[in-house]
Design a protein around this nucleic acid. Structure first.
Lengths: 341, 341
DNA sequence: CTGAAAGCGCTAACAC
DNA sequence: GTGTTAGCGCTTTCAG
C-alpha cells in the first residue's frame, strides 16, 4: 500500500483555489461574517473539490475545547462496562464529541499514566468507570476538568457519582415474587464483601419486612457470582427441608445455576418455585430453562446519563456533589410466571 | 463542584518562572539542544512546580502526528471486539498512543460521520473491525491514512486484513477428537450464510478426509449460534440412530447446548461422546458440564498484531496487501478427556 | 549555551 | 463584503 504523503488541504489551499483570502474561507465555511452568497458558495465548492477537512487540532488550540472526553475504566472492559460505554457514546456522539478509551486494568501506575495523557491531550472531561464492587479513590476536588464517576462510586462526597440502584432493584425483585404469590423467599447472592451484595441484601430485607415475611434460611446465602454456586445453593435449599417457593438470585448466572439445580432436584420452576435474577444478561437470562425474570440495571441508560451530565458540566453547568442512582427495571420472563388457575 | 477556569500552564509560564525563554524551556524538557545542566534542571523544576503539562494539540500541529489511532467497529462492541480492542490497546499503549473508539452499529451514515471526524482530528491510522460473518466494503485504496482491517475482511485485496483462522482452528478441533480416539464425528455449526460457518466446515472436512473419515450425518448441521440449537442438534443426532462418538460444535454456545442435550438423552460426555467448541468463551466453556475443550481464536493477539502492523505502517512501513491469519489454539478441558483405560 | 523569530492551521478582531 | 493581522502553545531554525 503505497501512500504518497501529500499533506492534507488547508484553508490556504482552499482560499487560493477559490480566489479569496483564508479569513474568508473560514467565514464561509463556518457561516460567520457578512459574505456575498455567491462567494460563500464558491468557497464551499472549492472546499468540496479539494476534499477539505478542517484541522480539528488547530481549531481546538484556539477555542480551548477539544470536543473530546476520556473514558477511563478502572478494571477491564467487561460485560458491565460495555453497555455503559455504548450509552455514553450515544449521548456524546449527539454532541459531536469523541471518546478516548483507556483501560487501566486495576493498575494505579497505568491509571496515572492515562490521566496525564488525557490531560495533555486536553480532553474536556472525564468519565471514570470500573468495578462496582468497591468504592474508588477520588481524583481530587481540584482536578482541572469535570469528572463523572459512573458505576463505581468515588470515595469523596464532593465528587459526582452516578450509579445503578441495587437496593431498589432488589426490592423490585422481591415485590414481584410476592405479587406472583410467593411467600417463602430465599436470597442467594455473591460475596459478602461486594457492595452490590450488601445493597441487594438490604433491599431484599426491606421488601420482605414490608410484607411481614422473612428470608428463608434466616438470611442471605453468600457465595460466588457463578452458576456453580447457584446450583449448589439450590441443592442446599432443597436438602435443608425448609419449604420455599421463591428465590431471588443476585445475578443471572446464579439464577441460571439455581434453575438448573432445582430442575435436577425435581423442583419445578416456576410452578413450585419462582426465580428472579439480576443483570438481564441475555445469554444467561434467555437461555436459562425456563428463561429468567430478571432485574435490568439499565447500564446503558447510566452511561447516557453520565455523559449527559458531563456535557452540562463541560458547558459550565454545576455537578451537584453526591450520588445519583438510575432506577432498575423488572424484565418478566417465564421463571416467575403465575399458574393459570 | 466549583471550577475556577484557570487555564493550564504554558511554556511561557514555565519560562518566566525559570527566568529563561520559551525556546529554552522546550529544549530543556525535550532533551534537545545544548543546555547547561544547571539550566535544564532549573527549567525542569519550574515545570514541576507549576504542574506543567505540554499541550499535545500544539505539538501535533507542528509535528503532523497525533499519536492517536481510531478504532471503528462496524457493528456494536461485543464479545469478540472486546479482546481485540484490549489487545490493540496493549500494543498502542506501549507506543504512547491513544485510541478513539467509535461504534457505527452497522449504520453507514454513522460510519461516514465517524470517518470524517477521525480524519478531522488527524488520527495517524485506523483499525476497522466488526462482525466477522461477512466481508466489508473497502475504504478505498487512496484513503489518506493507513488502515488495518481486523476480524472483518475488506473486500479489496489491496487492503490489509488481519483475521482469525477458522479453517486451521477447525482442523485442530477434528484432529484433537481423532487423537482422543473418536472416529464417528459430527459437525454442528451456525448459519450457512456466515463465513465463519463455511470456513469451519471446510477445515473440519479437510481434517476428516485426511483421516479417511467422513462427517456423521453426511455433512455439517447448520442452525443458530445458540445453546437451543446445540440441544436440538443433540436430540437429532441421538434420534437419528447413526452411531457417533465426537461432535465438533462451531461455537461454545452450541457446544454447551450439545453437552446439555446429550446429558438429557443419557449420553455420557466425554466417555461416550467427545465435544469440542469454539471461542473459549469462559462463561460458557468453564461452566458447561463438563467444561468444554475449545478452540481459542486468540482475538487479543489479533488485536495486538493489528495495532503493531498499524504502528509500522504509520512509521512509514509498508503493509503487504492481503490477509494475515492468526492461528487458533486448542484449550483442553474435560469434554474430550480420554478414558483412563 | 541561550534568546528571538517564524510558523504549524485555524479563527476573530479590525481595517479597508 | 472581503482582506489583513495577530495569536492559540509549541518547536525549531538561526543569531548572538
Amino acid at each position: 500500500m503505497v501512500r504518497p504523503d501529500r499533506r492534507p488541504t488547508t484553508v490556504a489551499d482552499v482560499a487560493r483555489h477559490a480566489g479569496v483570502s483564508p479569513g474568508t474561507v473560514s467565514k464561509a465555511l463556518n457561516g460567520g461574517g457578512q459574505l456575498k452568497t455567491e462567494t460563500r458558495q464558491r468557497v464551499i465548492r472549492a472546499a468540496e473539490e479539494l476534499g477539505f477537512s478542517p484541522n480539528a487540532l488547530a481549531r481546538s488550540l484556539i477555542s480551548g475545547r477539544t470536543y473530546t472526553v476520556g473514558i477511563l475504566t478502572t478494571d477491564s472492559i467487561g460485560r458491565f462496562t460495555i453497555p455503559l460505554i455504548t450509552g455514553a457514546e450515544d449521548a456524546l456522539g449527539a454532541g459531536q464529541m469523541a471518546m478516548f478509551l483507556c483501560e487501566s486494568r486495576g493498575d494505579a501506575i497505568r491509571e496515572q499514566h492515562y490521566l496525564r495523557m488525557l490531560l495533555a491531550r486536553r480532553v474536556d472531561g472525564l468519565i471514570i468507570t470500573g468495578k462496582s464492587s468497591n468504592i474508588r479513590p477520588s481524583l481530587g476536588h481540584d482536578f482541572p476538568i469535570p469528572v463523572v464517576y459512573a458505576l463505581c462510586q468515588s470515595e469523596s462526597a464532593d465528587d459526582f457519582s452516578i450509579l445503578h440502584d441495587d437496593e431498589q432493584g432488589a426490592e423490585m425483585a422481591i415485590d414481584h415474587l410476592l405479587e406472583t404469590g410467593r411467600r417463602r423467599i430465599a436470597h442467594v447472592s455473591g460475596p459478602l464483601s461486594h457492595l452490590a451484595s450488601q445493597h441487594r441484601a438490604r433491599g431484599a430485607s426491606t421488601a420482605l419486612a414490608r410484607a411481614h415475611e422473612s428470608m428463608v434460611g434466616g438470611g442471605t446465602m453468600h457465595g460466588e457470582w457463578s452458576e456453580a454456586w447457584g446450583r449448589e445453593a439450590a441443592l442446599r435449599l432443597v436438602r435443608n427441608g425448609d419449604p420455599f417457593d421463591g428465590v431471588f438470585c443476585a445475578s443471572d448466572e446464579i439464577a441460571r445455576g439455581m434453575t438448573d439445580g432445582l430442575r435436577d432436584s425435581g423442583v419445578a420452576v416456576p410452578s413450585t418455585v419462582g426465580v428472579v435474577g439480576v443483570d438481564n444478561w441475555l445469554v444467561m437470562a434467555e437461555t436459562s430453562r425456563p428463561p429468567l425474570t430478571t432485574i435490568d440495571l439499565n447500564l446503558s441508560e447510566l452511561g447516557r446519563r453520565a455523559a449527559t451530565w458531563l456535557l452540562t458540566a463541560i458547558d459550565g453547568g454545576e455537578l451537584t456533589a453526591g450520588i445519583e442512582r438510575i432506577p432498575a427495571t423488572l424484565v418478566k420472563r417465564r421463571s416467575t410466571e403465575m399458574e393459570i388457575s
